[in-house]
Amino acid sequence: MVVVKYGGAAMKSPELQASVIRDLVLLSCVGLRLVLVHGGGPEINSALERAGVKPQFRNGLRVTDAPTMEIVESVLAGKVNKHLVSLVCLAGATAVGLCGKDARLLTARPSPDAAELGFVGEVARVDPSVLHPIIASGYIPVIATVAADETGQAYNINADTAAGEIAAAIGAEKLLLITDVSGILTDPDDPGSLVKEIDIAGVRQMVAEGKVGGGMIPKVECCVRALAQGVRTASIIDGRVPHSLLLEILTDEGTGTMITG
């Protein structure tokens, strides 16, 4: 099984979005069992701006007060999820749209930084039982990362984090984060400094040295956690590159950065 997280500016272009989904469906057609976990940052930002709210981030995570949470849930679990399900179906596969609240797929808990971040949650528990029959039927679950805690309070879960926890819970072989960066760079200002492959120890050293920061922190952390829980490889790949998903899975060269245990 392969868990694919799709998000960032890689979702902005309708043409590129359709291409990514077609590649996903192609992989499904040749026998891969896939789960698609999605973000929706650009769409959420647009909705917030229309509502007169300026988006705010801390360490790559969206600051989410109560009005922002309502917009996040409406956009992610509604508009974006339904759109991606529709694209998968148009490309010839069958998708099932879900969010973390459905069948208690994800149970949230407040972030330790809740005082600063608001309703940003962590994944307290994953119950993948709803996913198994969907995957076994050859369908593609498309998951929006809005979840609730034990009291029913909704939380915004970082999509990278959720994808990693879901990958571990279903025993996935691979975790792929499709985003709007080329991967891990030894020099953030030099695209040619891409790290093609690195292990957990190497990633931790780069974080400690300050070479990984901002929005890359949740991505790297979720990869490390997934690997520690049994996922074999985790890759961060550039969704702006045509067919990056196919290149990563079907070629030895791959794209982006692959992290191993």
Rank of each mutant, 00 (worst) to 15 (best):
R125D: 12
T161Y: 14
I200H: 12
P112K: 04
E150P: 08
N158F: 03
L176S: 13
T145Q: 10
I157T: 10
L90R: 11
P191E: 05
A136T: 04
L117Q: 00
N158D: 12
A93I: 04
G152R: 09
D190T: 03
P112F: 02
I71F: 04
A167H: 04
V63K: 09
P133V: 00
L76M: 12
P128F: 11
R62Q: 07
N59Y: 04
A77N: 04
H83Y: 07
V75A: 08
T179F: 11
F57C: 03
T186S: 10
V63F: 05
I157A: 03
I166G: 08
I157R: 11
V53E: 02
L117P: 10
A93H: 03
A124P: 08
H132V: 14
G192V: 03
L106I: 13
L185F: 13
C89Q: 15
L131P: 15
N59L: 10
Q153H: 11
T186Y: 01
I140M: 05
L84S: 08
D102N: 12
G164V: 14
R58M: 11
A66R: 14
A136N: 15
S111W: 00
F57R: 02
S193T: 03
V146H: 11
E197P: 05
V63P: 10
L105H: 10
A144S: 05
P67E: 08
V63T: 08
L117V: 07
V96Y: 12
A162L: 02
A163N: 08
L175D: 14
P55C: 03
V75E: 11
A77C: 11
Q56K: 01
P128H: 09
Y155P: 11
L98D: 10
S129I: 08
L84F: 12
I198H: 14
V53M: 00
A159I: 02
D113M: 03
D189F: 13
H83G: 09
D189A: 14
F57T: 01
D65V: 00
I166A: 04
F57Y: 07
D160H: 05
Q56A: 09
D65R: 01
D190M: 02
S86Q: 09
D190E: 13
A147L: 00
G152A: 06
E70F: 01
E173V: 01
E122G: 13
C89L: 02
A144D: 12
E73C: 07
D113T: 01
